[in-house]
Amino acid sequence: MTVNWQKVVIEPSVSIKEALQVIDKEALRVALVVDNNKLVGMITDGDVRRGILKGIELTAPVNMIMNISPVSAKASLSSNELKQLMQSRRILSLPIVDNNNELVGLKTLHETLVIEKRENPVFIMAGGFGTRLRPLTDNCPKPMLKVGGKPMLETLINNFKNHGFYKFYISTHYLPEVIMDYFGNGDNFDVEITYVHEEEPLGTGGALSLLPDDLPKEPLIMINGDILTNVDFSKVLDFHVKQASDATMCVRDYEIKIPFGVIEGEGHEITAMVEKPTYRYFVNAGIYIISNHIINSLSKNERLDMPSLFEQKQGEGLKTLKFPIHEYWLDVGRHDDFQKAQLDIHTLGINND
């Protein structure tokens, strides 16, 4: 249920009695005090009670008792971030303001706890051999290795579920029966799962061509099945849609520290000396948003990696964007990554049932 926050907006000159009537009538437990569209205060029935105890008359204006520094949030925050803020501050509602502190909405804790279903398909790549993790992967696909007591693939699916996604497509190749026997059609996990089997590895882009014709038309989220992350997938998807992107690649900030002085020059001449520099790059995080028309344009069973697909679509004049992610992210590709994942999983809040 979306709250009709406009009904709890009042002016600073409104009487305390009128504000109390607004609070009681709208059942949101708050009134938002606005002056020239800007949020200047917030009032609850608790503020009213404290005012009465101080001897302030109900006919007095609300600016005598209102909280002049209410906790507010920017509209750019995700639902999950708003929930965390409200829970940490122990508040039930949060005014939403723009960069000019103008009121643009009100979010309640109840709203953030209700997960809205999203029809976007999620395509998880789970067909790799996991050779760098042998012997652990001799009889087990890498995404099915257990981290924190359950397969990484299950943790990934649970994270998507927490953001309202329920339509899953899983690409298999190596030991597909291990994955299919565990998840089945998804009923036991309250999701829908369709399997896409690669007879020969086609690359991340090529696997897209195997998706069924009845795939939902909404933009698709694609992710490698060996990634441990608490990325807010809804936020990435909203960016893709808002920017009218055709293909969006999530990227990570990656630093390389050179432990020596770097000498730059032309021929034998030194032009610059940089002592122990740090170079920063954006690297591919293995998470993509792909619009439906791109999937439909792909040739069936043609090997294609994702960077090549992006370059191809750029050449066709389509809009390809990058989305930097700053949340926890770990590609569990090596034994030391696997050990790190075992430690990290308990502090991330993503290993949910």
Rank of each mutant, 00 (worst) to 15 (best):
Y328N: 09
K167M: 02
M1Y: 08
D214M: 05
Y166Q: 06
T229I: 07
V191T: 12
Y254I: 01
E302N: 11
Y254C: 01
I56K: 03
Y279G: 09
P143H: 01
G148Q: 00
L103F: 07
S78H: 05
P277Q: 10
E266S: 08
K300D: 13
G349E: 07
Y279Q: 11
L298R: 08
V22Q: 02
F183T: 02
K235L: 11
V251S: 01
T131N: 05
M180D: 03
A27I: 13
E57G: 07
N4P: 02
F168G: 01
V104Y: 00
G286Y: 00
G46L: 13
Q314C: 09
L20G: 11
C250L: 04
K25S: 09
T194D: 12
E269G: 00
V22I: 10
S88I: 06
I23V: 11
R303S: 15
P259F: 04
I294N: 02
N99K: 14
E81Q: 15
Q314L: 14
L20Q: 13
F183Y: 02
Q342P: 11
L153W: 00
D337K: 07
L298T: 09
M64V: 11
I263E: 03
M66I: 09
I221S: 04
K146R: 06
I345E: 07
I290F: 04
F160H: 01
I91Y: 06
T137G: 00
L32A: 15
V262C: 04
D336H: 14
D226N: 12
V241T: 15
N63M: 06
I68V: 11
D181W: 01
S299K: 15
L94D: 08
A341S: 12
E269M: 05
G55R: 10
G128F: 00
A126L: 01
D214H: 14
G41S: 11
A341Q: 09
G164C: 05
S69Y: 15
E275V: 09
G349A: 11
E199I: 10
S79N: 14
V8R: 03
V9M: 11
D246E: 09
P176H: 02
G315R: 15
D337F: 04
L53R: 15
D138W: 10
K319P: 03
L220W: 01
A272H: 06
C140R: 12
A207L: 01
M125T: 11
M152Q: 08
P212C: 02
I10M: 10
F282S: 09
E311F: 07
L228E: 06
M180S: 13
A126P: 02
E218D: 08
G206T: 09
F123P: 09
H197K: 10
V3M: 04
I221F: 08
Y182K: 08
G46Q: 14
L318Y: 15
